[in-house]
């Protein structure tokens, strides 16, 4: 083949291989942007935000919540009140030094509660947590009274790591909303204080053996 023809005819394949090749390389460019993306975006987001207007939706005010007596990283936060959940609060209605006539006392007595808390040899006793002097409160190790709504102070005596995580947000659960005022579940919202470990159960559903 003549040299000029060869040059002329090879121009097209070279053109049609180089240009797509360059295009494909350009489509690889995002790979070179590196780790700069997500991690630095999160690190640089240090400006405090208003809890209320992160999303354009109104978060309804929740009922039966109390302010926690310590602050989290964002200030005051709330947890669920527990006294409303206890059916027969106030305990002092029965547990007092007066003689009281109670209907169905045998049925509603709770001396049969099994305490599975602590290890087998040295399980917790009822009066480890419940104040003998005032049944409407719990009692801390040094004798200070703890309200049922602030049960986290009780649990946090031993489970201080979980309490720290709970204040920060790594333990426990928020109630329904991720935005708006921070309302979290209280300790006893999830854990039965007399048997706090979650029970073994069957899974709620199963994943199909695939075809």
């Amino acid at each position: 083949m003549k040299k000029s023809k060869l040059i002329r005819y090879s121009f097209y394949p070279i053109l049609f291989c180089l240009i797509p090749g360059v295009f494909i390389l350009f489509s690889c460019l995002p790979a070179f942007s590196g780790e700069a993306g997500l991690a630095s975006r999160i690190k640089n987001a240090t400006q405090k935000m208003d809890k209320k207007n992160q999303v354009e939706a109104s978060i309804p005010k929740m009922k039966h919540i109390i302010a926690v007596n310590v602050e989290d990283q964002g200030g005051t936060f709330f947890t669920k009140a527990r006294k409303v959940e206890i059916n027969r609060f106030k305990c002092s209605a029965c547990h007092n030094n007066k003689s009281v006539a109670i209907d169905n006392a045998a049925r509603i007595s709770h001396a049969d509660i099994q305490v599975v808390h602590g290890n087998k040899e040295k399980s917790l006793a009822c009066n480890t947590c419940h104040s003998e002097k005032d049944r409407d409160f719990l009692v801390a190790g040094e004798g200070t009274k703890i309200d049922f709504d602030h049960v986290y102070d009780m649990c946090g005596q031993c489970h201080f790591r979980q309490k720290k995580d709970w204040i920060g947000g790594a333990h426990g659960k928020r109630v329904t909303y991720w935005a708006g005022e921070r309302v979290v579940e209280n300790c006893t919202s999830c854990h039965n204080p007399h048997s706090p470990r979650f029970e073994k159960q069957w899974p709620k559903t199963y994943s199909v053996p695939l075809k």
Binding site: Y9, S10, Y12, P13, I14, F16, C17, P20
Partner: peptide, 12 residues
């Protein structure tokens, strides 16, 4: 010219 393009195009 199109024949020559098609050579490169086939590889592509």
């Amino acid at each position: 010219p199109f024949i020559f393009i098609s050579i490169g195009w086939a590889v592509a």
